[in-house]
Design a protein around this nucleic acid. Structure first.
Lengths: 220, 220
DNA sequence: GTAACTCCTTGATGCAAATCAAACGATGAC
DNA sequence: GTCATCGTTTGATTTGCATCAAGGAGTTAC
């Protein structure tokens, strides 16, 4: 990640991290109602965040991987309003938010960084709203796969091969569709020769075709 | 709004506001691609923010009224990624973001306030994702009406009467449904004696019924 | 090994909302 | 006043996805 920090800044930055915390697969890092104290930077592992209604309906609001920050939802009310669940064994850096605020008053670069992280999350959610409000099942899945591979690629993984950390049901919850529909869309892409799927292993054979499905216009 | 600022703080706070700007109905305060310089606090009037795809599909991402802040989407890339359109003649306070950052380094309360505003937006978008991903047409409209009246009530307006500033199509875009479906849901509520509708005038006759539609469980 | 479980795939059917279509009401131009 | 335009309502029809249902694949426990 290009942060614009020099080594001196980096040293100061380490001060925001109080401790590390391991979270086993299936465990919650925090959950709805918990008192908010810290942001968490994911070192290793993979998380989902989700909100739920009283009558038990659940909406996955995001999937987060190494280098990403979770817990921003807690700032406004001092309590978390969603659950963060590890989808594989994970380790996070605990950053007490008081430290973050104190240090970002001293270091404009850190301050800027914090603002950008929050703004990025707002923009990401805007595009999920577009997905949920305007796109059809296959467009949603195409967008999802492109987004995942792009983020994985930025972390040094393959652009065309990935192992999903989440179930069809969790993908469906994120994309506003049922697990059967997710499965059918995978099968459709596979039949069309766009991807190869074997359970959670996915290999993208034709990225352009995926992009065309996601956005018919720009790649004509 | 309970801000926790004393009068002395408030005076300093005025420093973040560079100028005011009037925006006529239908005009854009900023649009996708514009260079980001400032946040805007709405003094009077009513806005919508929306994102759009290259093939012309539009998603309304929010409706904003007096006292609310828009422009947060621009921080991450230094460019706005959505459009902000005035739905009625409006006036905003222009707050150059550089000022905001400078002053919030000096005033922890302002810093905290900025963080809360961004976090609140993230949490709001989480609940819109729940709406779009899990709810049916009538639940969405009920949630929308309850949210609007609640925000208007906090500003001293009636809890039960309002004049919509947006068209059926804009409501539909926000809620992920077509204008005809919005219209039918209004008619249904009206037939059921829950609301009275006359074009953009809406009067809520039975708030509990609306709440029950929005969330069948909690109000049984 | 097999039993029990979870997750995934596929097929058949149903339904909520989209689409297509027409008419109505409000507003503004002249 | 009339006409044109835009937003809204309502009806008829279609459709994409949900739901219901059954079976297959992979994993864990013993």
């Amino acid at each position: 990640m290009p942060t614009g920090f020099n080594t001196d800044d980096m040293k100061k930055l380490d001060e925001v991290v109080a401790t590390r915390r391991r979270v086993k697969q299936g465990e919650m890092l925090f959950s709805n109602g918990d008192v908010f104290t810290s942001l968490y930077a994911i070192r290793t592992g993979f998380f989902k965040t989700c909100v739920s209604t009283e009558d038990g309906r659940e909406q996955v609001t995001g999937f987060q991987m190494a280098g990403e920050i979770i817990g921003l939802d807690g700032i406004v009310t001092d309590h978390h309003s969603c659950n963060a669940v590890a989808l594989e064994d994970a380790e996070v850096c605990v950053m007490p938010f008081a430290n973050v605020e104190d240090l970002s008053r001293e270091f404009p670069l850190l301050q800027r960084h914090v603002h950008k992280i929050m703004s990025r999350e707002i923009v990401r959610e805007n595009s999920v709203m577009m997905l949920l409000g305007n796109m059809r099942a296959e467009e949603r899945l195409a967008a999802f796969l492109l987004n995942l591979t792009q983020r994985l690629h930025a972390r040094g993984f393959s652009q065309t091969e990935l192992t999903l950390r989440m179930s069809r049901e969790e993908i469906g919850s994120y994309l506003g569709m049922k697990l059967e529909t997710v499965s059918r869309a995978f099968s459709k892409f596979s039949d069309d020769g766009i991807i190869e799927v074997k359970q959670r292993y996915v290999r993208i054979l034709n990225t352009d075709a995926l992009k065309k499905i996601f956005n018919p216009e720009t790649c004509s």
